[in-house]
Amino acid sequence: MTVPAPRVRRRPSVPGRVLPLLLVLALIAPLGLLFAQASGTTADDHDLATRERLGVRYLRALGPVTDALVEAQSTAVAGAPVSRAALNAAIERAAEVDAAVGDELRSHERWAGLRAKVEALPDRGLGDPEAAYRAYGEATDLLLALYRKVRESSGLIRDPRADSFFLQDGIGGDLPTATVLAGRLADLVRLAPARPAAERVKTGAELSELRVAALGPAMDLVADLRSAVDSSESTDLGANVLTPLDTYQRSLEAFTAFSAPGPGRAAPSTDQLTNAGLTAQNAAKELRTVILDQLDALLEERLDTLDRDRLLARIAAVVAVALLAGLAVVQLAAWRRGRHRSTEAREPAEAGRPATVRPDQPAATRPADRQPVTVGGGDAERWRPFDAAR
């Protein structure tokens, strides 16, 4: 008869062993791609917000320069001696900021041109009001160009959030333009009576054009700030901005009223316009400080959020990689155990497989494990009764 051999466990096929590992790798690849894209986007947003804060720092330094330059222009056009103390101090503070962040904002060239123009003002024959008006006009034009450069190079002009975009547009575009042009309007009103009679028509047209140019940015500033408050999720923005905005708007209305001919007068009132201009300028200073503080706070909050998101993304990526690595280790260990068990089962089956025994096979030719066994030191063999019976 034939003794069946032990059943050997079948080894898993190669695809069955490799497929789990391939699935693990297939999961790692898209997770890595998603993490790389998210990390790149977060890094870009972080860099933009960081540069924007540099721009806010620069705009904060340009504010006192704007005020001092407009005040010096009004003094020079009025024929009074110009005190350089406030203007020089503002220039020095702005120069320090330009030295610190000018490389990042690429503002050195424009700042150098503005500073040279401002420092050359005392040597331009300011005894002539018309010459002073033109000279300071050239300097303030360079100042407004520097404002635009800072907004562009810092990325403020491309800010993706509605509230911070309207704030930067107001503080970097509308407010300095309105301040400079309002000062020019007041100075031109002072210069107009002294001009020749042949130029009165030209002067009237110039006054009308400058009045529209000055009041347009001021109204745009009001609209920008209200849009920023309406679109912002911050509860502090409205509470902090609306009060100084109302003060500025009232002073602007008074300045507008005195900048045009009124009942009983053919020309604007110089003294009333000057006083209204000073009130509007003081309100603009207060409003500028508030806007810059709020804009910087929004950007700082955004940076904190981006840092937190980047940290959470890294933690999630590490956890995902650890889980997938653990799964790969488990699958590899299971494959090795299966291979080891298969080897152990196959070796005994191949080395100790029982031979086939036929009933008519002589005892001498049978396998050793089927030879007769003697009992009791030479007693009768155990197979003899079977042979006798046969």
Rank of each mutant, 00 (worst) to 15 (best):
P4C: 14
S13W: 06
V14P: 15
V14H: 09
P15C: 10
L19W: 07
L21S: 07
L22Y: 00
V24S: 03
L25H: 05
A29V: 14
P30L: 11
G32Y: 10
Q37R: 13
S39E: 01
D45L: 13
D47M: 08
L48I: 05
L48D: 14
R51V: 04
E52W: 03
R53S: 01
V56H: 13
V56I: 11
P64W: 12
T66L: 04
S74R: 14
T75H: 05
A76T: 03
G79N: 01
A80V: 06
P81F: 10
V82D: 11
V82M: 08
R84W: 14
R84M: 02
A86M: 08
A90Q: 02
A90M: 02
A95F: 00
V97M: 07
A99D: 11
E104P: 04
S107K: 00
A120R: 11
L121T: 01
D123G: 15
E130H: 15
L144G: 10
S154T: 09
P160A: 15
P160N: 14
S164K: 13
D169G: 12
D169S: 14
D169F: 14
I171F: 06
G172M: 05
G172N: 09
L175G: 02
T177P: 01
A182V: 09
D187W: 00
R190S: 07
L191G: 01
L191M: 02
P196Q: 07
A198K: 12
A198R: 14
R200P: 04
K202H: 12
T203P: 00
L210K: 07
A213Q: 05
D224L: 01
R226M: 03
S227E: 04
A228I: 04
S231K: 03
D236T: 07
D236Q: 05
G238V: 06
V241A: 05
D246L: 13
Y248S: 00
R250Y: 09
S251Y: 01
F255K: 01
T256K: 11
A257Q: 10
P263E: 14
S269G: 13
T270F: 10
L273A: 08
G277P: 00
L278E: 01
A283T: 00
T289F: 00
L292H: 13
D296H: 11
D296A: 15
L299W: 00
L303S: 02
D304G: 13
T305N: 12
T305M: 06
R308G: 01
D309P: 04
R310K: 14
L312C: 00
A313P: 04
I315T: 09
A320R: 01
V321T: 03
V321M: 13
A322K: 08
L327C: 09
V330N: 07
Q331H: 05
L332I: 07
A333G: 10
R336S: 11
R339F: 02
H340C: 01
H340D: 13
S342P: 04
S342A: 15
T343D: 13
E344N: 02
R346W: 06
R346G: 02
P348L: 07
A349V: 05
P354E: 03
V357T: 08
T365K: 06
R366H: 12
Q371G: 03
P372D: 02
V373D: 10
T374H: 12
W383L: 12
F386S: 15
